[in-house]
Design a protein around this nucleic acid. Sequence first.
DNA 1: GTGGTGAATGTGAACGGTAACATTGCGGCT
DNA 2: AGCCGCAATGTTACCGTTCACATTCACCAC
Lengths: 351, 351
Amino acid sequence: MISTPGGTRNDDASPPAPVRAPNIRDVARLAGVSHQTVSRVLNGHASLRETTRQKVVDAMEELQFRPNRAARALVTSKSRTIGVLASNSSEYGPAASLQAIGTAARDAGYTLDTAYLETSDRPAIIDALDRLVGHAVEGLIILAPQSRSLDMIAELSITLPFVTVHSTGGLDDHRLSVDQTAGAVLATRHLLELGHRRIVHVAGPDGWVETAARQRGFQEEMTAWGVEPPPPVHGDWTAESGYAAGRRILCENDVTAVFSSNDQMALGVLHACRDAGLEVPGNLSVVGFDDIPEAAHYWPPLTTVRQDFAELGRRCVALLVAALAGNAPEHPHDVLPELVVRQSTEPPRPG
Amino acid sequence: MISTPGGTRNDDASPPAPVRAPNIRDVARLAGVSHQTVSRVLNGHASLRETTRQKVVDAMEELQFRPNRAARALVTSKSRTIGVLASNSSEYGPAASLQAIGTAARDAGYTLDTAYLETSDRPAIIDALDRLVGHAVEGLIILAPQSRSLDMIAELSITLPFVTVHSTGGLDDHRLSVDQTAGAVLATRHLLELGHRRIVHVAGPDGWVETAARQRGFQEEMTAWGVEPPPPVHGDWTAESGYAAGRRILCENDVTAVFSSNDQMALGVLHACRDAGLEVPGNLSVVGFDDIPEAAHYWPPLTTVRQDFAELGRRCVALLVAALAGNAPEHPHDVLPELVVRQSTEPPRPG
DNA sequence: GTGGTGAATGTGAACGGTAACATTGCGGCT
DNA sequence: AGCCGCAATGTTACCGTTCACATTCACCAC
């Protein structure tokens, strides 16, 4: 005896139903088509009768169907994910870039997988990169500006396309940035043009790409004007370290201007000046870097170099996405920094 | 004629080999076990002879095997991902929390999927939540402090476990925060104890949970001291808006103190004072909120209320992970804010 | 020895999509 | 009429992992 297919049906009193999310076959059944047709609708295939497409769309709507990313990722072996190696600072700049990257990535149909670097030592970087690779990201954006990160990428022989937000001014396909060196030149030239010669540079910590680039810009421009650049005083980007640097600098009483590698440290320098009873810009001119939103409200409002962090983030994504799509990466031109003159600089007092 | 199975072998000159990443069957073959045994090693199954385990581990090592997340997610229908709804501000607070969340999530074996809210209107929130749900996140952390976000969650009938970083002071299982109201009370009381009575509150924008909570704390404490609280002046968290608020406030010349809902706006108020030729704290006392790292270097160093953003982020993750593991969420106790007295406050001048 | 027990391991079938190839139907050309 | 070609759709296999269940084996009690 041959039983009819699908014998028992348990129409009523069915067991508690495991409530599975609908898949393309459920949609197909409801729409009266094959699951492949549903897949074609999903992927915008060309050869589809409009009536069919509509039936499928309606069925999707009715079932509240959502395609399963994991299944798609499994079969295509594409994660549609971009990995970001981020430094663990809560500074304005990185935060602004990160956010812009997140938004741009989303608009391009990518998801971000962000690894925050707790420390910037070797194992931490390796660990973070390893995790990102393990998550099968399709490309990398290096927001962590430690020069080491780049070395690690090379060392781990990571073959993924990647973009770094920071550059030394020399561009290659992988690097994109506000030209930090040019920005530093701008700031330094501004002070030189005002007549300052005894200028000290408060630099960021060693090992950061920005630190090196801005330092170089300072030194180059000083040298170009025939002024011997004094050794930089290093901080760690915080206002606190800028304050410490300021105290140290003010001991040498012939300094007339300071170029700080970021705005927060400049704020610390301003603070140190007040402690020492010095006026800015009367006794000392100060230039910052970044133009964070607060800089205009410091006392005095800070002359600084503006960076467009958001634009930078967006460009990174554009560059990487182009690379992922196999497009020849159009050689990115730098985002240009801009000097914003406020009230913390003026010509040095005679004498 | 029946050919022998696997006839042609193309030993040499084989086609370019699609270089597939090794999977558990490759590992199994090399280790001389079944793929299931490899899976068991991967998942730390108990019944495994140590020698077998070692063989498998060696094989994994040799092949540089990495388990495929998508395949695992597909079959387990667990993404091991936490969704974060973040506001699009580059402020210190959210950035610090976000980073702590990212680190804590990683330590707990979860990945973050962050949706940055470009605007805080309805469609944007719905869109962001929709995307996170579509990405099959297992739980949500709401870093976007708009009250609306919570309404949207309810409205979309999202059944995912979620935690919000912001609270109105009243705790439920979902909310965790520095007690903003208590912080505002602290700040207000400090001014009242110094003898101030004409105190204006510079509040954040409407629709933010923090705005409401801090405003309430201010009003409650003022009322408790028998002082009628004047209507708040609203800003948008930026120093610029604090500056505008300051100018407006200083028109009413009998105000002796300002409590600003965050440090950046307080900075703007300080700026407005200088423009008006007023001294802080001589003519006006100013209290901020957050204690961002720069606050100690403002002029004058700002009295403010400290929030531990990182701790907050960590707790969020702990709470959510516990919920995901099915553990009874231990009722979170609030992170307590702390008054940091610096030099921007003093008793009002007599008269 | 026979059967039971549990540890250690293997087998086959999912999971939800996409790719490759097969099939159908229809209009135009010869 | 017969055939071709293409648009529209269907069929089947496969991606890499886990799950449920089956099998093997050693050991022990009877």
